[in-house]
Nucleic acid binder design. Structure first.
Length: 355
DNA sequence: AACGCGGGGTC
DNA sequence: GACCCAGCGTT
């Protein structure tokens, strides 16, 4: 059995002072947990502060428009989280507040097994596990779990170990769950864990051998290489930006007109993209090629500087169009494309093509 | 069980 | 480059 008292006292001494820990209201925990899904705490921190300042209560967030929320999320990635956070906020307000149990919380959009357990234990004190990547690692190592933690059976095994720690509620559930996560982030790290300082090294299976052998994971597929084109059209120091339609890759996100899954020199596709934004392209000059890796796609995108005139009309590719002064509110890919155009790279006149 | 979905830090 | 991060929802 893991020495829970040692784990808890280690946590109380070493816990980072995170803003949602200072005041772990259900709304703050909801916000932080959604932002931290597959995202480092340090990355989510400034977003949490901005959201909390702009929408201090769950009712404020529910009253915002989805577009506002997605735009405020820009740069954080996995944008369906933003839409689901907004939906969850509206749902919570409609039912008079966030429900206090993991079972009910799991019914809300964006809240799966981990997040439900985290909110229920941290904000409401329910004795339920919250198994994230850190807990996977800590418990797989301690118990020597040989099954892949990203398989259903492996996840069940880890969850059972985590649940057992709450058996007699010797430690406050929120403290225990956060202690496991904090330990995974600070001590029981993926590579070169510092076992010598671990408060629960006694009894740990992996410490006897090679800790980095755990947790076992299924092999992941490499991102598929794709190409695409993007165009920069400037006017009065601003760049033409479009909002991508749909909820697929970068759906709802702002950026310069870009077409994915077409060749680097597919100027017809680029011209159609601008036509959908209401512009007729006269010339396109290649200025850069940017690479952007998503979790499942490895994109090489050729960036063109565009000359065009207003033609009116709009196609279905974009849900909105505007002139964007800074690149704020854009996806990271969008900002990268804008930056490529601002760079002092020489124009590739030899590749220039007039439409 | 596999896939779609972002972005960035770290070694 | 590879790995992985306070994962979830769909198929």
């Amino acid at each position: 059995m893991i020495d829970r008292a040692a784990l808890a006292s280690w946590y109380l001494e070493h816990a980072r002072a995170l803003p949602w820990r200072a005041e772990p209201t259900p709304y703050h925990v909801l916000l932080s947990e959604l932002m931290c899904q597959q995202t480092r705490v340090e990355t989510a921190l400034p977003y949490f502060e901005r959201f909390r300042a702009r929408w201090p209560t769950v009712a404020d967030l529910a009253a915002a428009s989805e577009d506002e929320v997605v735009e405020a999320w820009a740069g954080l990635g996995y944008y369906s989280r933003a839409r689901r956070l907004h939906q969850a906020a509206r749902s919570a307000v409609a039912r008079g507040g966030l429900p206090p149990t993991a079972a009910e919380l799991a019914d809300l959009p964006g809240i799966g097994p981990y997040t439900a357990g985290a909110i229920a234990s941290i904000a409401f004190g329910e004795a339920v596990p919250a198994v994230d990547g850190n807990v996977d690692r800590v418990l797989a190592r301690w118990h020597g779990v040989e099954e892949a933690v990203d398989s259903p059976s492996g996840k069940r095994a880890i969850t059972a170990h985590a649940a057992a720690l709450h058996a007699d509620r010797a430690i406050a559930p929120g403290v225990l769950n956060q202690a496991l996560m904090e330990l995974g982030a600070r001590v029981c790290k993926p590579r070169s864990p510092t076992c010598g300082t671990c408060p629960i090294r006694s009894g740990c299976t992996a410490r006897e051998g090679d800790p980095s052998r755990f947790p076992v994971k299924r092999p992941r597929k490499a991102p598929v290489a794709i190409t695409g084109v993007a165009g920069l059209l400037d006017r009065d120091g601003r760049t033409l930006a479009v909002r991508r339609a749909g909820t697929g890759l970068l759906g709802g996100l702002w950026g310069p007109p870009a077409v994915l899954e077409v060749d680097h020199d597919d100027l017809d596709a680029l011209a159609r993209a601008f036509a959908d934004a209401g512009f007729s392209v006269r010339a396109a000059v290649p200025v850069a090629t940017v690479r952007h890796v998503f979790s499942h796609r490895d994109l090489s995108c050729r960036v063109y500087r565009i000359e065009a005139e207003e033609a009116g009309g709009r196609g279905a590719a974009w849900s909105d169009v505007r002139w964007e002064p800074h690149g704020r509110g854009m996806s990271s890919l969008g900002r990268k494309i804008v930056a490529a155009g601002r760079a002092d790279a020489p124009l590739l006149a030899a590749d220039s093509r007039i439409l």
